[in-house]
């Protein structure tokens, strides 16, 4: 039984159909990448999961339907969504952003431990702990966004293009940290990414979307080895 399963998911923005049959399955503790061009429906797929966009089809999480639930309800079930554009709270400090991430948690001692863990993982954030999030660099904001989501202690972390707008070396650092989070916590992940090489460094399998439809899935090893697929979908 997969942790998260999407079958033939559809979604519209007004009259425009953006998802037209997306199917993805994330096993417990697994990591799946969603690849595809701009406008293929990657972001909308994540939004359908977290309840920020209305969707049709089947969205099951831990063997129950979560389609149509409000975003706060989906979050309370253990799905943490790092949205496109990061969603950091600009007028709140770095520490306050982390505490917002832990909003639903009652285990205060463990919360403090987790904050320390993340500040060790991202030393930049430790230096800026009292700064407003809006004053951080793009890379630091992305680290904060990932950390905030992690503070919720989710079972499933969904990440929307963590490399967007970052310099290649910064994007590399962010992905290294995400990989470490995954290894050390065992959280399942669903990662949207344009840069296939970055995604491959974290995920075990990949689904490729094209105009709102799943057109291809496979393990990273399978897809890496296939030259045609690389050329067609993964940018060489």
């Amino acid at each position: 039984m997969p942790l998260l399963e999407l079958v033939d998911v559809t979604a519209f923005y007004g009259p425009v159909q953006v998802l037209d049959g997306v199917s993805i399955s994330v096993p417990e503790g697994g990591a799946v990448g969603i690849l595809g061009a701009n406008g293929a429906g990657k972001t909308t797929t994540l939004r359908a999961i977290s309840g920020t966009v209305r969707a049709g089809g089947t969205i099951r999480y831990r063997d129950r339907s979560i389609r149509g639930l409000k975003p706060e309800r989906v979050a309370s079930l253990g799905i943490a969504h790092v949205p496109e554009g990061r969603g950091t709270l600009g007028n709140l400090t770095v520490r306050e952003n982390l505490m917002v991430g832990a909003y639903l948690r009652k285990d205060h001692r463990q919360v403090a431990t987790d904050v320390e863990y993340l500040l060790d993982l991202f030393p930049n954030l430790r230096e800026r702990i009292r700064s407003n999030a809006s004053a951080l660099s793009g890379g630091e904001q992305q680290m904060l966004a990932v950390s905030r989501a992690f503070m919720a202690k989710p079972r499933l972390l969904i990440l929307d293009e963590p490399s967007l707008g970052l310099a290649p070396s910064t994007a590399r650092n962010v992905y290294d940290a995400i990989g470490r989070l995954r290894r050390e916590s065992g959280i399942a992940m669903l990662v949207v990414e344009q840069n296939a090489n970055l995604a491959f460094s974290v995920v075990d399998s990949v689904t490729v979307l094209e105009t709102g439809r799943s057109v291809l899935s496979g393990t990273t090893a399978e897809l890496r080895g296939d030259d045609d697929i690389r050329r067609a979908y993964l940018g060489g």
């Binding site: 977290s50 920020t52 409000k70 975003p71 706060e72 979050a75 309370s76 943490a80 969504h81 949205p83 969603g87 950091t88 709270l89 917002v100 991430g101 909003y103 639903l104 905030r148 989501a149 919720a152």
Partner: peptide
Amino acid sequence: PSAALAGI
């Protein structure tokens, strides 16, 4: 919207 993603 971002606050809702944290379960608020």
